[in-house]
Amino acid sequence: MIQYKSVTKIYGEDVTAVDQVSLDVNEGEIVVLLGPSGCGKTTLLRMVNGLESVTDGDILFNGESIKSLNEIELRRKIGYVIQSNGLFPNMNIEQNVTVVPTLLGWSKEDKKKRFEELMELVGLDAEDYRKRYPHELSGGQQQRIGVIRALAADPPAMLMDEPFGALDPIIRERVQDEFLAIQRELNKTILFVSHDIDEAIKMGDKIALMKDGQLMQFDTPSQILQNPANDFVAQFVGKDRMVKSLTIHRIEQLMERYELLDSSIEKGQIATVSKSSNLRDVLSYILESKQQAVHVVNENDEVIGQVDFALVNQYMIDLAEKDEPVVNP
């Protein structure tokens, strides 16, 4: 849906911010642009809706060059969320959320209805917040409003520039989870800028790792973690990259692969983990329980199998050997 065709951005005479980057963002995918500050990730994002000009190369939106599209109309079709949420202090929450529908000339009733839908999406009470102003909300609430404002006119694509960067870790995690839940329903095409590897692993279907304006690696989180393309990637993802990659896989995937489902196991003295836990948490539980294995339980707290350290180890080895890309569920 968004295609970069060897895009280059040069500031002034010779400052190259983005150097011949090509990558495709498919429909319904979250692609995270990741890298240290000054790597050109934000510039790359802002070129899509024309906030930065393209020096060389081209960007296609829905197959059409953005140069051939009307800039204002294009921007109204792409949701835009920035780190400091960018809510307008002079407008109340309802006016803020429905700002793009207002630009598009929606009727009052349509806007009101849409506002209520969106507020429900993030679990905020529409009546309670309608007439309040941004400064009366907490950081987490403001960021949620920033996200639903970008969704207001139901754009097919969204650009998110470190949208959760200003939130404290606990709130950030909650807003991330909430956003992923929304995304599972809405299936937007999303370009997401981050400097945080953990956030990128969690949010991204694919990660584009950048350095000095160049694309270092563009792949799924598991591939980036397990097969870093070069030293820079390996260094950026960290020495604990294998441990990080454990978070991508859920225990039920492992059990399906090895056909471990066994409901005959009796619930005993052994610790239990939910089948939707990721492998990193499973290992942590095993360590914590000071036993060799844990029982896996389903939603109804019934034991459906048993896993131990060696199994997890075997699973990771098998995945790496088969070079099998594991896409985020």
């Binding site: 809706n49 906030l51 204002i72 109204r76 920035i82 400091s84 960018g86 307008f88 002079n90 650009l159």
Partner: peptide, 23 residues
């Protein structure tokens, strides 16, 4: 006026006169 506001107004497709009068 915070430059982030201008930036997000632009990014959402405000025309220049709308940025002036609404933001």
């Amino acid at each position: 006026v915070n430059s982030n506001l201008i930036d997000s107004a632009k990014g959402m497709g405000f025309k220049p006169y709308q940025i002036l009068f609404k933001v």
